[in-house]
């Protein structure tokens, strides 16, 4: 059990709640989602509560995260995109903090479950669709009609474009989920080699150094991936929001 690499993703009920035959239990996943929101919100609040014109160390971290997301959004969706800043910033902070919290030993990684990342992706795509139709009406459908395509090919191209659009939430969620899942499993497998080799006696302990080095290196890589995936998620959100703002290619 201790070396089962999948065991870390096990969902356990903490407070069983059942409403109308449906399971609404407060699980360890819910607990870590609450913790993620609390840590992200608490950090931003605490660091900007006693803010000064010249930022302190922690305040400048908050300001850097703001600047980072704001620049990303301006580059990806133009200055009009800034109206979506609260959404993009919340998503970025949630994914980033959830990934980083998952790096603690014995902690649960919220983003390693596809349903969580899929709902985040659906939130983005839902915003794109609703805002696109609200702002442009049926003109939003121009998104699916590339320019300069011969009329005969039009139905085929439109069908492909529609499927391509529908595949966005899936690829967005699968990418984040697969990265976190695969990374944590790899880490656990290599760490498992250390203990199983160590149980083999003196030679095994000597050999266990190799997977130990690998585990240390992978831990560093995982921190990079944790940040990179939050960044990628936010960048793609900006790109999709750009489609909602300017659908006519």
């Amino acid at each position: 059990m201790a070396q089962d690499p999948i065991h870390q993703f096990h969902i356990s009920q903490l407070v069983p709640i059942e409403i109308g035959g449906l399971d609404f239990s407060f699980t360890n996943s819910s607990l870590f989602m609450v913790a993620t929101a609390a840590v992200a919100g608490g950090f931003l609040y605490m660091t900007t509560a006693n803010r000064g014109l010249v930022p302190g160390r922690m305040q400048s971290v908050s300001e850097m995260s703001y600047e980072f997301v704001a620049n990303m959004l301006r580059d990806g969706a133009g200055s009009q995109g800034m109206r979506f800043f609260p959404l993009v910033f919340s998503l970025f902070m949630f994914v980033l903090v959830a990934n980083l919290i998952g790096m603690f030993p014995y902690f649960f990684t919220v983003t390693s479950h596809i349903i969580v990342t899929f709902m985040l992706a659906m939130l983005v795509i839902g915003t794109v669709v609703v805002y696109g139709f609200m702002k442009h009406g049926l003109g939003f459908l121009k998104l699916f009609v590339p320019q300069g395509v011969p009329g005969v090919l039009m139905p085929l191209v439109i069908a492909i474009e529609v499927i391509s659009f529908l595949s966005r939430p899936i690829s967005l969620s699968v990418r984040l989920f697969a990265n976190m899942l695969a990374g944590h499993i790899t880490l656990k497998v290599f760490a498992g080699f250390v203990t199983s080799l160590g149980a083999l006696g003196a030679l095994g302990v000597g050999g266990a150094i190799l997977p130990l080095i690998m585990t240390v290196a992978l831990t560093g890589l995982e921190f990079l991936v944790a940040f990179l995936q939050a960044y990628v998620f936010a960048v793609l959100t900006c790109m999709y929001l750009n489609d909602a703002l300017h659908p006519g290619h």
Binding site: L166, S167, I170, V174, A178, N179, L224, L228
Partner: peptide
Amino acid sequence: ARSGWGLAVKVSSEFIAGITVGAIL
């Protein structure tokens, strides 16, 4: 800054997502 691993996951997720949506539809 994109590592090879990141690129692999990115490209394969894009490809699989297209096929998955086609199959579901």
